[in-house]
Design a protein around this nucleic acid. Sequence first.
DNA 1: CTTCTTGTTGCAAATAGTTCTCAACTGCAT
DNA 2: ATGCAGTTGAGAACTATTTGCAACAAGAAG
Lengths: 140, 140
Amino acid sequence: MEGALRDAGVRITRQRRVLLRVLAEAEDHPDANELHRRAHALDPGLSLATVYRTLSVLEEAGVIDRHAFEGKPARFETSDRPHHDHLIDLETGAVIEFRSEKIERLQAEIAAELGYDIVHHRLELYGRRRKGKAGGNTPR
Amino acid sequence: MEGALRDAGVRITRQRRVLLRVLAEAEDHPDANELHRRAHALDPGLSLATVYRTLSVLEEAGVIDRHAFEGKPARFETSDRPHHDHLIDLETGAVIEFRSEKIERLQAEIAAELGYDIVHHRLELYGRRRKGKAGGNTPR
DNA sequence: CTTCTTGTTGCAAATAGTTCTCAACTGCAT
DNA sequence: ATGCAGTTGAGAACTATTTGCAACAAGAAG
């Protein structure tokens, strides 16, 4: 992966290596601040400004995705994982991933009807946990 | 409309009346700053802070919708128009509105499965016009 | 391995959008 | 007309992100 970046003309610095590692190990969708906290633990003296700058570089190189959810700070994730959409918990800010073959297909159909081929799309559901009648899985 | 707001416990002040008018007359999707400029023209001494506060109140009352596009400032529009999603033409930048009952339903189903109720969602398709076989309808 | 060039970094200050603080003011129910 | 809770203006405060600049380091060249 570093090789690919170097080939893309991106210098591999100590701080970038740390950031890449933190991103690779992240199971969630951390924002710049959280990434800084984690990276800073491995390498004190890695500044927040560098985190931001590196994130932009990595995004441009296509190795990470930036998700700008509703006003809140941008969140990042490596782009090596299969496509999925997001459900954002409006109360906790938690991000839940999901994927629906049906929706993917419908989107393509709709685009086709309008005379288009989809290059990519963005689907975000914003909701809150069901109260009243049970229903969800993951019980609190 | 003011009546509905008053019934919802929202006081109708001079500045709110102006804002409502500006919003009603807006054909586009202005952001807070632009709304302030327009409202300020009708009523100098209407502060930006009030614009923001009023927008929040109106959003909560359900009379306007807030759209947060890609990090950019939030844009607003009256919610009296039917819901729709967007298909963005990557080549021309054209924005096509569409609505799919099926997708709406699927989204609700998916959220329900995850134990959530959807408050709202954002669906944007990015694509390019079909080449080869004809296809499109609405030629521009 | 040393040198050189150019990209990169840290820090602090700058931006941009939005929210908050607080004293003065005003709908509107009575 | 009166009272009080809700609202306002002005500016400070906040949050997320970017930028200016001098010191610094990656990696190509020798």
